[in-house]
Design a binder for these strands. Structure first.
Lengths: 246, 246
DNA sequence: GGCGTACATTGACACAGATCAAATGGCTTT
DNA sequence: AAAGCCATTTGATCTGTGTCAATGTACGCC
């Protein structure tokens, strides 16, 4: 059913119309995309692709959350991308997938066969322009993430992560005043650990510590209340309100 | 003097002609770049820019090595980019510099004022195309680096780093056979530490350990001989010969 | 030639976070 | 309601890497 709803949607009504790779397209260009796109839905936990797979399709996340991960033989896993709506999956010009891609919630993708998409990229400057912007944004996010992985303590990592999620959830005004806010974690403790380069136990302990010190409150396991945003910010190790952009 | 030599060079003779942002330009486009580019040289140790600076100029590294770093208040430093010849500095569309940029050796840059360069990006598809390729390559490198920072041990980090440098130094054939090779480190122990998310002492200890076990040999502090490449590879924690791309 | 400075190595110890193990809690199934 | 499953929390201990401190080495300078 979900698929039907999605497939029937024209690009003009698309929820990620103004943020995805198609953001700067005009009406005609959108029409062109509309003809070649196709929707695909994955269920929570499902594998979207694994490292080494032929990269025949590229896509934008329309709804849901997916992860990009690298795994070493002994099982150590590092998340290298958290894909939220409007984020792009796959790389034009590459033959095989470099990362394991997994749906953590139900995910709907707006997909394109890679070859035709590469042609679009050449022919429609608006798409290439936007693609470049998005790639550079991701690069900045990846570098911020590198600072976190390389130099932050477990507590700072957790605080930074919560800030990141909060920023993607809230409107920019609400948080500027350092007021209360509520965030729903889209991912499990294990996934958080793989994001932050920590074990599940350390994630849990640091969350408990922040709770015991009143920096955060829990409402169930996956919902977190931040009574005062500035307190959390102080724990994140960031000099300003910069933080992860993802 | 260096500046004179550089300034007199036409793009056609440029050492990074086929690798930098101008790689896919034809003769006419190159002529256009030639008119607006200007060379600038920095000495080893010199600051090229600091986080927050107005980003009026973007540039390609023509020769030498520079670093991109993020620093937190207490002095903890994480390198987020190692810039070698053909790599690009600065981001079109951004008003301020996001990272500290430092010359680690003498560095010559092929520079452009940002605004005109943004116009070029719009008008010359070959440049934008190449820019996108390069951004995606850097993103892949950053993600590989994230795996290293988040999940690898100190020993694996050092081995991976040496492999990375070796790969950028050697011809692709020479290393395929796992034969001996010699690499010159472009950076100090401290810089290596900031690259790998380690302290200077740990870097030193791990290098000594690899030396004592015969995986590497020293010729002075900065030159390293790798008797058998496969041995080093086994220490890097990589499942294949993938490793950092930078 | 001696000296100063910067970089690198080595040693002793501390501690953050990993590991191993057990307990708790929430959820579905029957 | 009981049982079973999974995610999470909490506890005890271990270990890799950081920290602090001393020593070694190379190189330029007066």
């Amino acid at each position: 059913m979900k698929v039907n709803i999605a497939a029937s949607n024209a690009c003009l009504d698309c929820p990620i119309r103004h943020r995805a790779v198609c953001a700067s397209c005009d009406r005609d260009e959108l029409e062109e995309l509309n003809r070649v796109k196709f929707y695909k839905t994955y269920f929570a936990g499902q594998t979207i692709g694994v490292r080494g797979d032929a990269l025949d399709v590229v896509a934008s996340v329309v709804s849901g959350t997916a992860t990009l991960e690298r795994v070493i033989e002994d099982g150590r896993t590092q998340m290298v991308g958290l894909l939220l709506p409007s984020d792009f999956i796959g790389r034009p010009g590459r033959e095989t997938l470099q990362y394991d891609v997994t749906a953590v919630t139900d995910v709907t993708l707006c997909s394109f066969h890679r070859k035709p998409f590469e042609a679009l990229l050449r022919d429609v400057p608006h798409i290439q322009e936007r693609m470049l912007q998005m790639a550079l944004d991701e690069l900045d996010a990846a570098r911020e993430w590198m600072l976190l992985l390389g130099r932050k303590t477990a507590r700072e990592k957790i605080a930074s992560f919560l800030m990141t999620i909060a920023k993607r959830t809230l409107d920019p005004l609400g948080r500027a005043h350092g007021g209360q806010c509520v965030i729903d974690l889209p991912i499990s403790r294990e996934t958080m650990g793989n994001f932050l380069g920590l074990t599940i136990e350390t994630v849990s302990r640091q969350l408990s510590a922040l709770k015991n010190e009143g920096v955060i409150e829990f409402d169930g396991k996956r919902r977190i209340i931040i009574p005062d945003f500035t307190n959390l910010m102080l724990e994140s190790g960031d000099d300003e309100d910069g933080g992860l952009l993802i």
